[in-house]
């Protein structure tokens, strides 16, 4: 086995790990009860899922230029997914998407005005 073969196999493993992470987080979207928990579940696919697919592709086709591209892609993906989930969570809270009853502490509720009926 040459080094290229090993890198190929490792790359496939990483790509399949990424796919599995994305599928599981999609299951989480259906299963979890509220917006915030779902945003947390999607975080696994947007972070680890995409990062490990990019890493796998890099291993299968390695070159210096691809390494730079992969690093930029992963950093940009992580930053934008974090900012995106924060924006979604905040928008949801401001639009009265209350956390599910299973949420046992809610200190942000102290900053809310009384909600008068469905707005």
């Amino acid at each position: 086995m040459t080094l290229a073969d090993i890198a190929d196999i490792l790359g496939l493993v990483f790509i399949f790990l990424g796919i599995a992470t994305i599928i599981i987080s999609a299951i989480g979207l259906f299963k979890l009860p509220d917006l915030y928990l779902r945003a947390s579940a999607v975080g696994t696919s947007a972070g680890l899922g995409v990062a490990s697919i990019v890493l796998g592709a890099l291993l299968m086709d390695f070159s210096g230029l691809n390494l730079v591209k992969a690093i930029i892609a992963i950093i940009a993906q992580l930053l934008t997914s974090a900012v995106g989930s924060m924006a979604i969570a905040r928008a949801g809270y401001l639009n009265n998407a209350l956390p599910a009853p299973i949420t046992h502490i809610d200190e942000l509720a102290l900053t809310r005005r009384e909600v008068s009926g469905g707005r």
């Binding site: 915030y36 928990l37 945003a39 947390s40 579940a41 975080g43 696994t44 972070g47 680890l48 992580l78 930053l79 997914s81 974090a82 900012v83 989930s85 924060m86 969570a89 905040r90 809270y93 956390p99 200190e107 942000l108």
Partner: peptide, 27 residues
């Protein structure tokens, strides 16, 4: 706040700079 959101299971909903508080949703 980005680092908190990036680790799945914790999520920054908002911050209050004047009170120096992060509102964090934890799973």
């Amino acid at each position: 706040s980005s680092l908190i959101t990036l680790t799945p299971g914790t999520l920054t909903i908002t911050i209050s700079k004047e009170h120096k508080i992060l509102y964090v949703h934890g799973m």
